[in-house]
C-alpha cells in the first residue's frame, strides 16, 4: 500500500504497472482489511494499552505480576497442553490423512472422513465438554458399568477434569483440523515421483527420506504450529470442564475478570492476554515462514 505514495519505487519495482499510474488493485481488499482492523488489531491494541494502564498513569505492575507462581504454572500448563495436543494431533492426523490420500479419490471413505473432519474441527466448546462428561464422566453409564466390573479408570483421580482430560478432549478437534490442513499437501504428492524413485533403484526408505519427507515436512510442521495456536487460544471447552485451579492461561484470564471475591484485576487479565498474543504471534510467524517454503516446494 505504501508503494502508492512513492511513484519512483513503483516505477522501478513494478515495471508491469505501466509508468506512474496509481494501482487500484488493493481496493478489493478494503472490506477485509477493515474487518481485520476492527476485529483483530483494535481489540489487540485495547488489550495492550489496558495492560499498561493504571489509574491515571502507566504501570508495569501487571507484567510484574506475571511472575506469580500460579500464573507461571498456568503459562507452562497452556504451553504443555498446546504442544502435546499439537504433536499428537499432527502425528495421528497425518496418518489418517495419508490413509485418505492413498485411497480412492472419489471413494466413500474419503468423502465421509473429510466432511466429518470439517464438522468435528469446529466441534469445540461447551457441547464437546458435555459430550465427554456425559459419555465417560464419573456419572456416566459407561463408568458406572465398568467400575462395577472392577475397571475403575478414575482410580487415580478424576483426570477428566484436569489437564490430562483436556489433552484427550482437545485431540477430538485437533486431529480433524490436521486432516483438513494437511490433506492438500499430501494430495500434492504425485505418484510419478514414487515411480521415478523406483525406476532409479530407490527403496521405499529412499523415497520417504529424500523425496516425500522433505516435501511434506514444511506442511507438516506448519500444520502442527496451527494446531498449537488453536489449542492455546481455546477457552470454552476448558471453562466448561475445569472448575478448580485454572491450570491454563485462558482460565486465569477469566478468573482475573470475573472473580467475585475481590481479586478483580482487569489490567492483569490484559497482561496475561498479551502473553497469549505474544505466543501466538511467534507461532504465526513461524507458520508463515514454513508456509512459504511449502509453497516453493509444491510449485
Amino acid at each position: 500500500m505504501t508503494v502508492v505514495g512513492n511513484p519512483a519505487v513503483t516505477g522501478v519495482g513494478r515495471p508491469m504497472m505501466g509508468g506512474r499510474r496509481i494501482s487500484l488493485t488493493w481496493v478489493g481488499a478494503v472490506p477485509f482489511l477493515g474487518y481485520v482492523a476492527i476485529f483483530l488489531f483494535l481489540p489487540a491494541a485495547i488489550i495492550v494499552a489496558g495492560a499498561f494502564a493504571s489509574e491515571g498513569g502507566l504501570t508495569l505492575s501487571n507484567f510484574a505480576n506475571l511472575s506469580r507462581p500460579y500464573i507461571v504454572s498456568a503459562i507452562v500448563g497452556s504451553v504443555i497442553l498446546s504442544a502435546v495436543t499439537a504433536v499428537a494431533g499432527a502425528v495421528l492426523g497425518a496418518l489418517l490423512t495419508y490413509a485418505i490420500a492413498t485411497g480412492n479419490p472419489r471413494g466413500t471413505f474419503r468423502r465421509v472422513v473429510t466432511s466429518a473432519c470439517g464438522v468435528l474441527a469446529q466441534f469445540g466448546g461447551v457441547t464437546l465438554a458435555f459430550a465427554f462428561i456425559a459419555a465417560i464422566g464419573p456419572a456416566s453409564a459407561v463408568y458406572i458399568y465398568l467400575s462395577q466390573h472392577h475397571i475403575d479408570y478414575y482410580a487415580s483421580g478424576y483426570w477428566l477434569y484436569d489437564l490430562r482430560g483436556l489433552e484427550v478432549i482437545y485431540l477430538y478437534f485437533q486431529i480433524p483440523l490436521m486432516v483438513l490442513v494437511f490433506l492438500p499437501a499430501v494430495d500434492g504428492i504425485k505418484p510419478q515421483w514414487r515411480e521415478a524413485t523406483d525406476s532409479l533403484g530407490g527403496s521405499s526408505w529412499t523415497y520417504w527420506r529424500y523425496v516425500a519427507g522433505p516435501l511434506l515436512a514444511p506442511a507438516f510442521l506448519g500444520s502442527m504450529l496451527l494446531l498449537f495456536a488453536n489449542a492455546l487460544s481455546a477457552y470454552a471447552t476448558a471453562a466448561a470442564l475445569i472448575n478448580q485451579g485454572g491450570p491454563i492461561l485462558p482460565l486465569q484470564i477469566s478468573n482475573a475478570i470475573t472473580s467475585e471475591v475481590g481479586l478483580h484485576e482487569p489490567g492483569f487479565a490484559k497482561a496475561q492476554a498479551v502473553v497469549l498474543i505474544l505466543i501466538v504471534a511467534i507461532v504465526s510467524v513461524l507458520y508463515a515462514v514454513l508456509q512459504r517454503r511449502t509453497a516453493r516446494w509444491l510449485q
Binding site: R68, S73, G245
Partner: peptide
C-alpha cells in the same frame, strides 16, 4: 476476607493439583 483471598490466590491451584 481480603487476607483469605490473597492467600488462596497464591496457594489454591497448587493445593489441588
Amino acid at each position: 476476607a481480603t487476607a483469605a483471598k490473597a492467600y488462596l490466590a497464591s496457594h489454591w491451584a497448587a493445593a489441588i493439583s
